[in-house]
């Protein structure tokens, strides 16, 4: 008998006495916590991102290239990985060398790159989370992991949801997903949180307003 048959047989014998239970699970919990305007939801996202040490910037559509160029040069970035589908104008003003996200690159080569700029699939306000799904403007998972500096652009309010349940509804499980809430951290020393271990130690999130509005603030 194979182990598969043995385990399934044990499961079936173990459950011989159990009641049928075919009723769907009751879901009495909330779809989101609290009622907010769209603007307040974006505020909450910004607040929660910052609470876990992500650096949050806000700008209007047209200001994005200048802001990204400024953030990269402030960091002293010599090179930046660019996912294949990142809108070309985003990095049009950047001085850093643009490195395409290619299958042939080795992890060692990626380790030499200063920064990475991506879009995202969805952002969750209640938890301060951005989710990447490997779409063309986000690239392979490793490009947002090995470089030490990640700038993630979130289109607000379109890409922002309030809660975890709403985020899961928007995501495709067939894609490789990475949920990111602040920079890499650990609680392993005395159960106290410290930022900065293996993932990017600096996470900057740019909230881009689709319509032109207000000045760049950071």
């Amino acid at each position: 008998m194979s182990s598969r048959e043995r385990i399934l047989g044990r499961v079936r014998r173990a459950l011989g006495d159990a009641p049928a239970d075919e009723a769907p699970v009751a879901r009495d919990y909330l779809r989101e916590h609290g009622q907010r305007s769209t603007a307040r939801t974006v505020e909450l996202l910004a607040g929660n991102l910052a609470d876990y040490r992500a650096v949050v910037h806000r700008c209007a559509d047209g200001e994005l290239p200048a802001l990204l160029a400024r953030l990269l040069s402030a960091r002293g970035a010599r090179s930046v990985v660019v996912p294949p589908g990142l809108p070309a104008q985003w990095l049009a003003a950047a001085d850093a060398a643009l490195v395409p996200d290619r299958a042939e690159s080795t992890p060692h080569e990626l380790d030499e790159v200063s920064s990475v700029v991506t879009g995202c699939a969805v952002a969750v306000a209640e938890t301060g989370t951005i989710v990447l799904d490997g779409s063309p403007d986000q690239g392979r998972r490793r490009i947002t992991l090995v470089p030490d500096h990640h700038i993630c652009v979130v289109r607000v309010p379109d890409q922002v949801v309030s809660s975890v349940p709403q985020a899961l509804e928007r995501l495709d499980p067939a894609r490789p997903l990475t949920w990111i809430s602040g920079p890499s951290a650990t609680s392993d020393i005395e159960l106290d949180r410290v930022e900065g271990v293996h993932g990017p130690r600096t996470l900057e999130v740019v909230l881009v307003q689709a319509q032109p509005s207000g000045n760049v603030t950071s």
Partner: peptide, 20 residues
């Protein structure tokens, strides 16, 4: 960890071409 969300959650379904 008493966080609203932990820093990283990875989800994968089988293998993805040229990623991972």
């Amino acid at each position: 960890t008493a966080e609203r969300m932990n820093p990283y959650t990875s989800m994968w379904t089988g293998t993805t071409d040229e990623d991972g």
